[in-house]
């Protein structure tokens, strides 16, 4: 079997205890929530730490709360809970849908929102055994000096692959982070940086406590679309969220958020299109926009050129679903 190298598991009961443990052991420490990303990575010796701090018993990290203005979701909330929660389904359907498309039923019973947001980046050259990576000669994210995705590149461009992130950004979500120095908040849109070795701007000492999402107005429509080869188990190969803000029957703003590119999601705003009518032309325009401005890399294991084309189609289909057009056009598109 695959081996986990020995570590100490801490199971704190309070936030204070947890943040102190993190501060004490950083950087040789990770939070473990559902463990569905951390443990495979540790088994492949891609992540090597000797202390784990469990998020399981921290009350502040659990539960979904609805206020007048926000939905607050604890970081340790399970993906299945998230996908089926009536408030989330009603107010944030794209997030519920994204959660429902993650991995497999068993993994959704284990994995959490916090873990998904902090999900390590993925790359065909890193999600491999030690033997494989040794044969490769390593890369910037393991023990090597070279990136195989962008030869000569200076930084790791492994792909952000978290299914929930694009819709969280589209909804304008904010995370709450705790450390021994106190609490801080950050919009999810600013949480990621262009460094695949550590792409979340969450310090090793920090704990993700909760996500707060403003309840969208009725004029805001958000859709998430994922494409992978299989209908289950697979990580996204294309991952896009589209937000359309509508006023008086025309576009008043919005964004397209694309995941599964490099370490950072690409956020494109729709200012230039304000005033557009809600029709197939808009779908085409948004498709063209992402085609021009977001480029999948040959990092995750599927043909990058096709992923680029597919991303465009998924954006169009997201738009169509939001403006009440049939998802597939009646006549084939060029």
């Amino acid at each position: 079997m695959l081996r986990l190298s020995p570590f100490t598991l801490h199971q704190p009961k309070t936030l204070d205890e947890a943040t102190q443990l993190l501060a004490q052991h950083a950087p040789d420490v990770r939070v473990i929530s559902g463990g569905t990303d951390l443990l495979p990575n540790m088994k492949l010796a891609q992540t090597k730490v000797t202390h784990l701090v469990s998020a399981k018993f921290l009350e502040e990290l659990h539960g979904i709360e609805r206020t007048e203005t926000h939905v607050r979701i604890g970081a340790a909330t399970g993906l299945k809970t998230l996908a089926e929660d009536p408030d989330v389904l009603e107010l944030l359907p794209a997030l519920a849908y994204a959660a429902s498309r993650i991995a497999s039923p068993q993994i959704r019973n284990m994995g959490t929102l916090g873990g998904n947001i902090s999900l390590d980046t993925r790359c065909r050259y890193i999600n491999q055994s030690e033997l494989w990576r040794e044969a490769l000669g390593g890369c910037l994210k393991s023990h090597g000096t070279e990136c195989h995705v962008v030869p000569g590149g200076q930084g790791c461009v492994a792909a952000l692959s978290a299914d929930t992130v694009p819709s969280l950004i589209a909804y304008g979500a904010v995370v709450e982070l705790a450390s021994d120095k106190g609490l801080r908040r950050a919009p999810v849109s600013e949480l990621f940086q262009q460094d695949g070795t550590w792409h979340v701007r969450i310090a090793r000492e920090e704990l993700l406590v909760a996500v707060e999402i403003p309840i969208p107005s009725p004029q805001t429509r958000v859709a998430y679309r994922k494409w992978a080869v299989r209908q289950s188990i697979d990580f996204p190969l294309v991952s896009v969220a589209v937000r359309l803000d509508v006023a008086d029957g025309v576009l008043a703003g919005g964004s397209v958020v694309v995941g599964a590119l490099g370490p950072r999601p690409r956020v494109l705003t729709l200012e230039r299109l304000v005033g557009s009518t809600l029709d197939e032309k808009l779908a085409q325009a948004l498709g063209q926009m992402v085609y021009d401005r977001a480029r999948p890399l040959p990092n995750i294991p599927y043909d990058a050129e096709y992923r680029r084309e597919r991303m465009v189609v998924e954006v169009r289909r997201a738009v169509r679903s939001l403006v009440g057009l049939p998802e597939r056009p009646l006549t084939p598109q060029a």
Partner: peptide, 16 residues
């Protein structure tokens, strides 16, 4: 090097 050396990357069809 084998490109798909896990049951994740070597995609065998699921029920769906």
């Amino acid at each position: 090097l084998l490109a798909h050396s896990s049951l994740l990357d070597y995609r065998m069809p699921t029920t769906l």
